[in-house]
Amino acid sequence: MVPISYYLILSAVLFTIGVIGVLVRRNAIIIFMCIELMLNAVNLSFVAISKHLDSLDGQIFVIFVMTVAAAEVAVGLAIIINLFRNKETINIDEVNIMKW
C-alpha cells in the first residue's frame, strides 16, 4: 500500500517540471505541453486525494479539468497557428508587441 503522500510528492515534482518548462523554454508549443503537464499533475493529486477520502468527487473534477484542457488546447493551438501565419515564428521572445 503506497501512502498518499508519495502520490502528492510525485504530483508536486511533476508540477514543478511543468513550471520549469514554461519558464525556461521559448517554443510556444513546448510551453503548451508543459501546461498540459501541470494540469496532469493536478489531476493526479485529485485522484489520489479522492481515494484517500473515499469520495468520487475528485475523479469527477478530473473529467472537468480534462474538458477545460481540451478546450484550451484547441483555442491555444489555433492562436499559435495564427501567430506563425503572421510572424513566421513561434518563439515567444519575438512576440513582444503587447509587452510594455
Binding site: T67, A70, A71, A74, V75, I81
Partner: peptide, 13 residues
C-alpha cells in the same frame, strides 16, 4: 465551454 472553444478555434484559425 466546449461550444465556445469550437467557435473560438474556428474563428481564430
Amino acid at each position: 465551454l466546449l461550444l465556445a472553444a469550437i467557435v473560438g478555434a474556428i474563428v481564430l484559425s
